[in-house]
Design a binder for these strands. Sequence first.
DNA 1: AAAGATCGCAACCGCCACGGA
DNA 2: TTCCGTGGCGGTTGCGATCTT
Length: 276
Amino acid sequence: MSWGVMAGQLGWSGLIDEGWRKGPWTAEEDRLLIEYVKSHGEGRWNSVARLAGLKRNGKSCRLRWVNYLRPDLKRGQITPHEENIILELHARWGNRWSTIARSLPGRTDNEIKNYWRTHFKKKVKTVPENCDKARTRMLKRQQFQQQQQQKQEQLLLQHQQQQLLQLNQLDMKKIMSLLDENNYENKVAYVPQIRQQPENIPINFYPNTSSSTADNQHEYGLLNTVFNGNNNGNEGCNEENVMWEGLWNLDDVNGYFGACASTKPTMHNNLLAPFC
DNA sequence: AAAGATCGCAACCGCCACGGA
DNA sequence: TTCCGTGGCGGTTGCGATCTT
């Protein structure tokens, strides 16, 4: 039974709070809202009541549109592939449903939130909370995984430092050969300064320099990690930091941040561009 | 068959960030 | 700088459907 039918049958259509109707939407209300969005576009939700003749507040209209009426919504069950993405991203971001939803076109944050709650939350709960042995095992496993991750990061750091060193050596060789070519031995040579790394960005998070464009998931992932380096993912991080050492140019960064066209152009909201 | 438990999901609530006046 | 309107987000609720005992 649809909510609309239900509303009619159960008499919820009379549920009114401060002049606004509440409860399940009727087919007629849906039609009015769709018409409104067609002619006025999304946004300015508070004017829907006035312009569309709906007795719903702006929030309710927006929610109905975003979660149910939007034409690009994907109907049907969450696929195993989508489920994997949800699991992976939830492990990474926690309950940031809207962030996770951006990686699943056609799925809403509400849908994903509901899916998680019904399918996984209970499974997490089933870890016996009072079972010390199980908890200890879990902690040990977490510690082990952390150690492995640290080792990997160290390796990455070493690798990238080596690459930077090689690059610097190459530069020096080039400079020296230029000096030789131009017979500059009696003049003071210009020695390029190694730029100071921004304090808030660990060097191991930078991608290698082999590619001139940030066009693969690995690099996007690394770029994400840069932004994930602090607590909320946006403070202290900006394009300039990302472009540090010239590993990416402005176009790369702009390309990256433009990857999610439907989202606000803020750092925080573009963290998941690689999955778009 | 009936009662209770659980699931699924639309909708609401309260808080917060942002932008414009 | 402050205030206010607006939109977005995550948490929660409510209720029919379905499953289990």
